[in-house]
Structures are given as C-alpha cells and as structure tokens.
C-alpha cells in the first residue's frame, strides 16, 4: 500500500543527495565572508525548510483525517510530524555547530530565526505525550489531529513573524528578488533542498510501510488468537 514506488524514490534520493554533496564540496565556491564554514548552510537550511514543511504537511493530513474519519490520514500525519522532529534535532545540532564556528557561541538567544525554530520544535515535542497519553485509538487520532492542525497553522505564522523581524546575522536566501545567493551557490542550494525533500518523502513512505505492516501483523495475530 505505502511501499508503492519506494525503490525508485530511494534511488532518486540517493542520486540527488550524492549530487548535492558533490556540488557543495567541488562546485560551490567558498563564501567571501564566512569562508569554508558556510558549507554547513547547504545541509542546515534545507533540513530546516523540509522539517517545517513536514510539520505543515502533518497539519494538512490531520485535516483530511478529521474530514474523512479515515485513520490512515492520522498515520500519515503522525509519521510526517515524527520525521520532522527528527530533522528538527538535526537542524538544532547543525545550527549550533554553525553558530559556534561563526559567532563563537553554541547558541545565541537574540537571534529570532534560532529561537523561533526552537519554539516550533518544543511545541511539537508536546505532540508525543499528548498522543500516547490517550489509550482509545479513535480519541487518540482525533486529539492528535486537532493538535497537528493548530500547531501546523502556527508554523507559517512563526515564519512570517521572523521574516518581519530585522536580522543582520541570517541573510535572506530565498526572496522574491532572488536573495543574496550567487548562481552557483543557488543551484547547489536548490539541489540540496530537492535531495532533502526526496529524503523526507522516502523515509516517510518507509516508516508508513513499517507501521502499516506492523498493524497488519497485529490484526493477523488477533485473528489467529480468536481462531485458536
């Protein structure tokens, strides 16, 4: 069911990520201001964008679940949020490494981009205790969906708020005027972003396949128990 097209998708992901890494280290020039350390940008920023999009996707799947009552949409929402949290850990870790190298500190509290991402991350960390504190599967799915929708709506609002705040340390790389990235850096960034998005979809499908198989197995066991 969920594993359809997983193999070609995984192959496309591997090719795109390998290409992205090759472009990062052999094609994209070193940044004039930050030098070699700016290479972290190509893993940190795509990971952050994909994680935030994953949170929003979790909210959209949750809407579909509440509208249809189909529990498979809740599963899709849960896996999207779960994966986004894992990527969020990566974003915070790579961000801290970049901050230490650039600013001499692992964390800077007066930087709105960092703090806002942490706020979103911590908000979604609440999802797990909320979800798993409810035993009834129907209620669990409904309550989780409501949370996913509310939190998913918060993500773009948070993004807009940060954009409206003036920042000198986080240059805008994606804007209507083209941002500050030169062509070769922009290409590398876009390939990295595509690779990260493909990775997210591949892992999402992989986890959905595993979860679905696990649920099917549970049903099979119950049936065998009843038959015995």
């Amino acid at each position: 069911m969920y594993s359809k097209g997983l193999a070609p998708l995984a192959a496309a992901t591997a090719v795109t990520i390998t290409t992205a890494f090759a472009l990062v280290f052999f094609y994209a020039p070193n940044d004039a201001d930050q030098g070699f350390i700016q290479k972290i940008f190509y893993v940190h920023v795509p990971m952050a964008i994909v994680a935030l999009c994953g949170f929003v996707a979790g909210g959209i799947f949750a809407i579909k679940h509440l509208r249809s009552g189909d529990s498979s949409w809740d599963l899709r929402s849960y896996v999207a949020i779960h994966l986004s949290i894992i990527l969020g850990v990566g974003v915070l870790a790579t961000g801290a490494i970049w901050a230490k190298a650039s600013w001499g500190h692992w964390w800077v509290w007066d930087e709105p981009v960092l703090v806002s991402f942490l706020v979103v991350f911590l908000l979604y960390c609440v999802y797990y205790p909320l979800r798993f504190s409810i035993e009834d599967p129907g209620r669990q799915a409904r309550y989780s969906s409501v949370f996913a929708i509310a939190a998913g709506a918060f993500v773009p609002l948070n993004f807009i708020a940060v954009r409206m705040a003036e920042s000198f340390t986080h240059p805008r790389v994606l804007s209507q005027t083209g941002g500050d990235l030169p062509g070769d850096m922009r290409l590398t960034f876009l390939v990295s972003l595509l690779g990260m998005a493909l990775l997210f979809v591949t892992l999402w499908k992989l986890e959905l396949t595993a979860k679905h198989a696990s649920m099917q197995l549970k049903k099979l066991r119950n049936r065998a128990r009843v038959a015995a």
Binding site: F21, I40, V43, T94, I97, K100
Partner: peptide
Amino acid sequence: YVAGAYVVFVALI
C-alpha cells in the same frame, strides 16, 4: 565544524 555538521546529518539518517 563542517565535517561535524555533515556527520550529524548522516548519523541521524
């Protein structure tokens, strides 16, 4: 630092 960041990403995945 760059190696550290990429190792974190690869290890996580």
